[in-house]
Design a protein around this nucleic acid. Structure first.
Length: 885
RNA sequence: AGGCACGUAGCUCAGUGGGAGAGCACUUCCCUGACACGGAAGGGGUCGGCGGUUCAAUCCCGCCCGUGCCUACCA
């Protein structure tokens, strides 16, 4: 199909058209039987509940750039897509729907509820997948997976049972993080700490048998209902005599001991601490050390239970208020201070977490972590940027056992059965109805499900068919690269490393590229509550997917934050439009052109042709290097400046001379170069700008057939060897053009006015290079009368500019204002004088001359000479000008 | 409390052991036959502060100030 380019680029239809073509034709499909080397990436599976946000846009754009680049570089590329069932998040969504119908999940019952979640998923889940497609994501969509798929669920069971059989999964009754709203345990990672302004309540606890008080401080006064001791430091002189005595716990009238424990900090507060072993992680440890009673005063919803005496049935917050009020009326409230401390919140619903005693399933991760550490230390997996390795190690070394059970319904149900007769547990890959210990049939399956991140941890191999030994695994595992944000380094990356090394005996990915997080233009995290969320699809609508992708690519290297501003996106929209129009220019001048193989050979290539071919080769080499090093921003800027500042600003302008001239072979040569460079440039840009490049590619002359540009090869090197001298000549001519333009600009010579220019050269070689390019000087600098030579006759009065070995003289007759020329010269002289002084000083430093490498010395000496000469010329010119006044 | 970053032009940020860069914004001129989402020419920075290493430091090292983030059980 052949397309014609409209006057301005219109992304909407172009994007829709090409994505459909690509997808329907199977252009993204990865063939596991391909003989080509493999390149594979698994997508960080977005939550089924998710809608596309900036983080996804960045993450997937970078992956797509890599995949398209590798695909064009001769690899068989698999980009594995899919979504995550997102246990708690998804359950919350459906529970909210139920709430709107005045129902709750318990009314429905487990099975009906799960059916409902599945139904929700069918109808409105996973919309994010279509949103990713609008960005151009070239995933192998035929392979789309879901963490609750049959296959992935099988993998989950296999892993769970294997770990259990090995003793690496166990059950224990401990203090865990409990979300009273989600009614489930959470792992330590799922608790987010946020500094909250609150109070520190100082309570008076009466010492039994005396009229003394011990003052204890707490941020959670309601927990005093479960106090079972007061602890002081063993060396604390203030309290030494009280150790072993007891307290009559106010409100509860319970006698609790005063104990000594080194955990207590004598400096803090009163130096005495109330101990609530069932509701505080520190107190839990102390409780175990001192054999204290563990009194749980909360229920699953965060209400005070029957252990809370008269407070039973109250919400924890109401109980706090009441406890404080009651203590005050008993004169047992010493004082209330303002206090800020970190409060743990549920990462899904923001409810304050309660430490809560309960029996949960754990993964013993020490041995898994050791292997995951080793894999990075050995270099089997490389983390980029490397600074993140330290963070990774730090966490792995201090890792705690992973609480994997959740008391929700949506997720992988733990494959464990409790026997009501012998009390033992049967864990099995297949559902069981008979206890394997006593053969009783009185079995109940565990109602808990697994942490969502348990199945995510298997993603790199479960999506490829494991535990079957699939061809996909054989071809594409380990994956080549994982692209992700640092916010899920522990949640996900670390756990995939543990599970991959454990079950595949091989790392899940060779490289991990960690990118920044996207924030708003002011550096604020985007959030609905702040109202500063920029919707990626709105951006795509307004600026086009390509411009948006280019922006993300150009921003990718920034430290931890990307401050996204719409102005920048607008800038890249302009860039896309520039490319579009440059292509239009080329096409207008290629109407009579037929591309041929090896067409550059034996053509009369002009100075400009050789120059752009040389620049093309440099850009091609550099962009490959940048992408190989994950320097996306470098790749973007290399291509930006090549496209705009070299190809458009210079080559296209220079080419007009040759295209419009009457020299047919030269015109043909220029057409060939224009075509070849543009065609290669489009291939270079395609990974970042897939849509616009595909559209233009199909408008190029020659037979494009049904093939996509993404099936072409990525440029890596020169199209043809160029003559360095000719390239240097072109640069010299360009310097002269710049010098003339500088004079014109500074002296306000009207753009339309043609001028006379004398170029007094220092050498014959300079003369030759300029003569070869004098037509360019005529057209680009608007010169009508050009004199070039060594020691040529100079105009009596002229504006003078120096471009390397060439003195650029513009007769004053053509100029408007002598005073302006004087000002311009003074400015130039001042500039060059700075250079002269700088190098004189440097070169007069004996130590520098003695120690610096010869190349540096030579370079600096040459610069001093050039600067000195330029200064002399300009000063003489200034003198002449002054005589005119 | 520990760890990790960051502090470069008005703004947002790249960058390197050898004379400071980009985009946007700004100034002047131009609707020149691809493009005003454009063209040409300019202005603007003691590269956070103080020391040290070096012939040479914006870059390496130390301290300080400021700003973010992550991890952590101080009631």
């Amino acid at each position: 199909m052949k397309t014609e380019l409209s006057k301005g680029y219109e992304p909407e239809q172009v994007e829709k058209k090409w994505f459909d073509v690509w997808e329907n034709r199977g252009d993204f499909h990865a063939d596991e039987n391909s003989p080509k080397p493999h390149y594979s990436i698994v997508i960080p599976p977005p939550n089924v509940t998710g809608v596309l946000h900036m983080g996804h846009a960045l993450n997937n754009t970078l992956q797509d750039i890599l995949c398209r680049w590798k695909r064009m570089s001769g690899y068989e590329v698999l980009w594995m897509p899919g979504t995550d069932h997102a246990g708690i998040a998804t359950q919350n969504v459906v529970e909210k729907q139920l709430a709107a119908e005045n129902k709750d999940r318990h009314e429905l019952g487990r099975e009906a509820f799960i059916d409902r979640v599945w139904k929700w998923r069918e109808e409105s889940g996973g919309q994010i997948i279509n949103q990713l497609k609008r960005l151009g994501a070239s995933c192998d969509w035929e392979r789309e997976r879901f963490t609750m798929d049959e296959g992935l669920s099988k993998a989950v069971r296999e892993v769970f049972v294997s770990l259990y059989d090995e003793g690496l999964i166990y059950r224990d009754n401990r203090l865990i993080n409990w979300c009273p709203r989600c009614h489930t345990a959470l792992s330590d990672l799922e608790v987010e700490h946020d500094d909250k302004r609150g109070n520190l309540w100082h309570l008076r606890y009466p010492v039994q048998g005396t009229d003394e008080y011990i003052i204890v401080a707490t941020t959670r006064p309601e927990t005093m209902l479960g106090d079972t001791a007061v602890a002081v430091h063993p060396e604390d002189e203030r309290y030494k005599n009280l150790i072993g005595k007891s307290i009559l716990l106010p409100l509860m009238d319970r006698e609790i001991p005063i104990i000594a424990d080194e955990y207590v900090d004598m400096e803090f507060g009163s130096g005495a601490v109330k101990i609530t072993p069932a509701h505080d992680f520190n107190d839990f440890e102390i409780g175990k050390r001192h054999n204290l009673e563990f009194i749980n005063v909360l229920d699953e919803s965060g209400m005070i239970n029957d252990n809370g005496g008269s407070y039973a049935g109250m919400d924890r917050n109401a109980a706090r208020t009441k406890v404080v009020a009651d203590l005050k009326s008993l004169d047992m409230l010493e004082k209330i201070d303002d206090y800020t401390n970190a409060v743990g919140e549920c990462y899904r619903c923001r409810t304050t977490i309660e430490p809560y005693m309960s029996k949960q399933w754990y993964v013993a991760v020490k041995s898994l972590a050791a292997e995951a550490i080793r894999a990075v230390e050995s270099g089997e997996t490389r983390i980029v940027p490397q600074q993140w390795e330290k963070t990774y190690y730090e966490w792995m070394y201090n890792i705690q056992d992973w609480c994997v059970s959740r008391q929700i319904w949506w997720g992988h149900r733990i494959p464990a059965w409790f026997c009501d007769d012998c009390g033992k547990i049967t864990v099995s890959r297949e559902d069981v109805s008979v206890c394997k210990h006593c053969e009783s049939t009185n079995l109940r399956q565990e109602t808990d499900v697994l942490d969502t991140w348990f199945s995510s941890a298997l993603w790199p191999f479960s999506t490829m068919g494991w535990p079957e030994q699939s061809k996909t695994l054989e071809k594409f595992y380990p994956t080549s690269c994982l692209v992700t944000g640092f916010d899920i380094l522990f949640f996900w990356v670390a756990r995939m490393m543990m599970m991959g090394t454990k079950f595949m005996k091989n790392v899940p990915f060779k490289e991990v590229y960690i990118h920044a997080l996207v924030r708003d233009a002011h550096g604020q995290k985007m959030s609905k509550s702040k109202g500063n969320v920029i919707d990626p699809l709105t951006i795509v609508d307004e600026y086009g997917a390509d411009a948006f992708r280019y922006t993300l690519c150009a921003f990718a290297a920034m430290g931890r934050d990307i401050k996204l501003s719409t102005e920048r996106i607008g800038g890249y929209r302009n860039f896309v439009n520039k490319l579009w129009n440059a292509s239009r220019f080329a096409l207008m001048n290629l109407e009579d052109f037929v591309p041929a193989e090896n067409s550059l050979i034996s053509l009369p290539l002009s100075q400009a042709d050789q120059w752009i071919l040389n620049r093309y080769a440099v850009a091609a080499e550099e962009v490959n290097k940048a992408l190989a090093d994950y320097k996306f921003n470098d790749a973007a800027s290399i291509l930006y400046s090549f496209t705009w500042h070299e190809f458009c600003d210079w080559y296209i302008e220079l080419s007009k001379e040759n295209l419009y001239g009457d020299n047919a072979p030269v015109r043909k040569a220029t057409q060939t170069v224009l075509f070849t460079v543009l065609e290669g440039l489009l291939r270079m840009l395609h990974p970042i700008l897939p849509f616009v490049t595909e559209e233009i590619w199909h408008a190029l002359p020659g037979e494009r057939g049904a093939d996509s540009i993404m099936k072409m090869t990525y440029p890596t090197t020169a199209l043809i060897e160029t003559d360095e001298n000719v390239v240097a000549d072109m640069e010299r001519v360009m310097d002269v053009i710049r010098a003339i333009r500088n004079v014109r600009g500074e002296l306000d010579v009207p753009p339309g006015k043609k001028i006379k220019v004398v170029l007094d050269c220092k050498s014959d070689s300079a003369v030759q290079s300029i003569q070869a390019g004098q037509a360019y000087i005529h057209s680009l600098a608007r010169v009508e009368d050009l004199v070039v030579g060594v020691a040529v006759e100079r105009p009596k009065q002229a504006s003078t500019q120096v471009a390397g070995e060439v003195e650029v003289l513009i007769p004053l007759a053509d100029l408007i204002n002598v005073a302006e020329e004087e000002a311009r010269l003074n400015k130039e002289i001042e500039k060059v004088q700075k250079d002269v002084s700088f190098f004189e000083k440097k070169l007069s430093n004996e130590k520098f001359v003695a120690n610096a490498p010869p190349q540096v010395l030579d370079k600096d000496r040459a610069k001093l000479t050039a600067a000195t000469e330029k200064r002399e010329i300009l000063q003489q010119s200034l003198k002449k000008i002054l005589t005119l006044k």
